[in-house]
């Protein structure tokens, strides 16, 4: 089982029951699940029409998903973007700043890093946003 964590804490999955599809099996308007090696440029037509995009993290130490999120947001996608995998409380702020709306955690992580820890993360702006603020 898994647990969704968003800025509001541990929440029920608003996309519960929606079928996730891989790029090979995609159809317009469906939820798209991508691996950490996805080629965002090649997937542009699918991304445009997806209702939800999930990016899989196999390990918290593999930061590719943060760049994928950046590319997807840059392509103009304004729908729901989710990180799926064993990310840490300590990566929550970066995940949201990179463009994710929430994280789907394996229960093992959610149990060890309870909701109170996720809710305690401060969301003040970062250096990067400040450097580019007009």
């Amino acid at each position: 089982m898994t647990q969704i964590v968003s800025k509001d804490g541990f929440v029920a999955d608003p996309f519960a029951g929606v079928v996730r599809r891989s790029p090979d099996d995609h159809r317009p308007g469906a939820a798209l699940r991508l691996g950490p090696d996805a080629d965002i440029a090649a997937l542009a037509p699918l991304i445009e029409t997806a209702s939800l995009i999930e990016i899989r993290f196999d390990s918290f130490a593999d930061g590719r998903g943060f760049s994928l999120a950046g590319l997807i947001r840059r392509s103009g996608f304004s729908g729901h973007l989710r990180a799926c995998g064993p990310l840490l409380v300590d990566q929550f702020r970066a995940a949201l700043r990179a463009g994710f709306d929430d994280i789907e955690l394996p229960d093992e992580i959610a149990n060890r890093q309870p909701e109170s820890q996720w809710r305690a993360v401060p969301f003040s702006g970062g250096y990067r946003e400040r450097v580019f603020s007009a």
């Binding site: 593999d62 930061g63 943060f66 990179a98 250096y127 990067r128 450097v131």
Partner: peptide, 15 residues
């Protein structure tokens, strides 16, 4: 400038 931009950069902490 690079120090400020790169500190806590959300995308590049797990290279």
């Amino acid at each position: 400038l690079i120090r400020q931009w790169s500190t806590d950069h959300p995308e590049f902490a797990y290279l």
